[in-house]
Amino acid sequence: MSRRVPIEAQPVDAPLTCAATFLVLTINDTPDAFKTVRSTLAGVDSLAKNVAIRDLNASFSCTVGIGSNTWDRVTGLPRPAELHPFPEVKGATHTAVSTPGDLLFHIRSERRDLNFEFEKQLIDALSDAVKVVDETVGFRYFDVRDLLGFVDGTANPVGPAVPESILVAQEDEGSAGGSYIVVQKYFHNIKGWRSLSTEQQKSIIGRTKLENVELDDADADKQKAHKTLATIEDENGDEHDILRDNMPYGSPGKGEFGTYFIGYTRRLWVLEKMLQRMFVGVPDGMHDRILDYSTAVTGSTFFAPSATVLAGLGDD
Score class of each variant (00 low, 15 high):
190 I>N: 02
149 G>W: 06
159 G>M: 00
159 G>V: 01
187 F>S: 00
143 D>M: 11
169 A>M: 14
164 E>I: 13
168 V>I: 14
190 I>E: 02
186 Y>F: 05
175 S>F: 00
159 G>F: 00
153 G>M: 04
160 P>S: 04
152 D>G: 02
175 S>T: 04
145 R>P: 12
192 G>R: 03
155 A>S: 05
149 G>T: 11
174 G>N: 11
193 W>P: 08
193 W>T: 03
169 A>D: 09
160 P>V: 02
166 I>C: 14
186 Y>R: 00
157 P>F: 01
199 E>C: 11
199 E>I: 09
162 V>N: 07
197 S>Q: 15
190 I>G: 01
200 Q>P: 15
148 L>H: 08
177 G>Q: 06
158 V>Q: 09
190 I>F: 07
196 L>W: 15
151 V>W: 13
146 D>I: 02
179 S>Y: 15
192 G>M: 05
181 I>A: 08
190 I>Y: 05
173 E>M: 08
169 A>Q: 14
160 P>Y: 04
190 I>P: 00
141 Y>S: 07
164 E>W: 11
147 L>W: 06
200 Q>T: 10
186 Y>V: 04
156 N>D: 07
153 G>R: 01
143 D>H: 10
140 R>L: 04
161 A>T: 05
176 A>Y: 14
179 S>W: 13
167 L>D: 07
197 S>R: 14
165 S>T: 07
198 T>P: 10
192 G>E: 08
166 I>D: 06
167 L>K: 11
188 H>Y: 03
147 L>D: 05
176 A>W: 09
143 D>W: 12
147 L>Q: 06
187 F>H: 00
147 L>H: 01
192 G>T: 00
157 P>W: 01
192 G>H: 02
197 S>N: 12
162 V>T: 09
186 Y>C: 00
163 P>L: 08
157 P>V: 01
172 D>P: 12
190 I>Q: 07
188 H>C: 02
185 K>W: 03
173 E>I: 15
186 Y>N: 00
170 Q>C: 12
168 V>S: 13
150 F>L: 13
176 A>P: 09
170 Q>P: 06
181 I>E: 11
140 R>H: 04
197 S>L: 10
155 A>P: 00
158 V>F: 03
150 F>E: 14
